Computed example of a mutant assay.
Amino acid sequence: MKEEEFTIVKASGEKVRFSIPKLKKSLRRSGAEEHTVSQIIDAVRDELYQGISTKEIYNRAFALLKKSKSIYASKYKLKKAIYEFGPTGFPFERFVAAILQYAGYQVKVGQILQGKCVSHEVDVVAEKDEEHIIIECKFHSDRKNKCDVKVPLYIHSRYSDIIANYENGNNCPTDGWVVTNTQFTKDAIAYGTCSGLQLLSWDFPKNNGLKDRIDRLGLYPITVSTLLTNSEKQFLLGRDIVLCRQLLKDTFYLDHLGVSEERKSNIISEIKLLCSETSVNEQH
């Protein structure tokens, strides 16, 4: 049986045809060399069966990447790493703020802004030059949950109320954003685009979604590390260390965790590689 004839099951329960090109693309995003990608494709192809889950395929590919080079596995698990921010959405808000901060914005998290009618708690406020952005972050710990049209409808009404309060004042917000770690439905995208909201999800806008920005800027979440334990990651998140880059500046947290010097050196080396290498080799 040809590989494209195998049916695989997504996390949502949806059944789709297995796609070698899609798997190859995701493996290449990890930065793995072409021969490594080919070896993993061959290994996964040999283990296919009808009804295999995307989770099983991911776990197999992840294990093979980690065996080849841990940094490949770290970059490959980017999407899963963001889900590990849970269960609350606060680390995700800090993560979005950190991405904007590294892009040159002055950011604040959890601000109360007065609208014309009522006050509103805004997840992130970002300013740079003439831009004054207010951002609502929608974090989902379950990848099956998408942001439907009710989300931009609600956010647009809040944004409009805040704007109305600034009609005759300075520093009026110039943009309203909705950022999610999952996806928007077609209606959500249609309404957001029509109403003038900026939507940012895992893969939207095309070629400039969350995953693209993270890869392009090398702003990987601390949860991508394959060397830190889950409890260590939660310790760091609890101290607002959401980016690998931040841990490089505050390595003393590893001492607080009682990490040995040898392991500390390995963790720092892994993170330095993550922050310095591009996610996709130039030949790709």
Rank of each mutant, 00 (worst) to 15 (best):
243 L>H: 05
74 S>Y: 06
90 F>D: 04
55 K>C: 03
171 N>P: 03
32 A>Q: 02
156 H>R: 15
38 S>C: 10
63 A>E: 05
145 N>W: 15
158 R>F: 12
187 D>L: 04
58 Y>E: 01
201 S>N: 06
255 D>N: 14
221 P>H: 13
214 I>S: 04
15 K>L: 00
271 I>G: 01
52 I>M: 03
90 F>H: 08
173 P>Y: 12
168 N>D: 10
200 L>Q: 02
213 R>F: 02
10 K>F: 03
179 V>Y: 07
140 H>P: 13
65 L>S: 05
79 K>A: 15
60 R>M: 06
202 W>L: 14
79 K>C: 09
88 T>K: 05
198 Q>T: 13
66 K>C: 14
172 C>S: 13
13 G>V: 15
194 C>G: 04
40 I>G: 05
220 Y>S: 08
126 A>S: 08
244 C>L: 05
169 G>R: 11
76 Y>C: 01
141 S>L: 11
233 K>P: 02
2 K>L: 02
136 E>F: 02
103 A>C: 14
90 F>N: 03
95 F>G: 00
277 E>P: 00
162 I>V: 13
249 K>I: 13
72 Y>W: 04
222 I>N: 07
182 T>K: 06
265 S>P: 06
272 K>L: 02
183 Q>G: 13
134 I>A: 00
230 N>M: 14
118 V>Q: 01
205 P>H: 08
23 L>I: 14
50 Q>C: 11
77 K>F: 11
60 R>H: 03
265 S>E: 14
148 D>Q: 03
249 K>F: 12
63 A>N: 12
131 E>P: 09
93 E>K: 12
76 Y>R: 06
239 R>H: 08
22 K>E: 15
21 P>W: 00
71 I>H: 03
75 K>V: 06
194 C>M: 01
208 N>F: 12
257 L>C: 12
123 D>L: 07
37 V>Q: 01
100 L>A: 02
249 K>N: 15
87 P>T: 03
236 L>T: 10
254 L>W: 05
89 G>I: 10
49 Y>I: 08
272 K>T: 15
141 S>C: 08
23 L>M: 13
269 S>R: 06
184 F>K: 07
76 Y>L: 09
150 K>W: 15
26 S>T: 04
103 A>G: 00
114 Q>D: 11
120 H>M: 09
149 V>H: 08
141 S>V: 11
100 L>C: 00
232 E>C: 02
186 K>H: 07
11 A>Y: 10
87 P>F: 01
178 V>G: 03
170 N>M: 14
243 L>M: 04
115 G>N: 05
221 P>V: 07
73 A>Y: 00
217 L>H: 03
134 I>E: 08
53 S>M: 09
134 I>S: 05
267 I>W: 04
197 L>P: 12
55 K>E: 02
39 Q>W: 07
168 N>Y: 09
167 E>G: 10
276 S>W: 06
63 A>R: 05
175 D>R: 04
177 W>G: 01
5 E>S: 14
238 G>M: 11
9 V>D: 08
131 E>S: 12
242 V>I: 03
27 L>C: 13
269 S>G: 01
67 K>G: 10
55 K>D: 04
67 K>L: 15
74 S>I: 01
42 D>W: 06
135 I>N: 11
114 Q>W: 07
216 R>H: 09
11 A>S: 13
236 L>G: 05
79 K>L: 11
83 Y>T: 05
159 Y>S: 00
109 V>H: 05
128 K>T: 14
240 D>N: 14
11 A>Q: 14
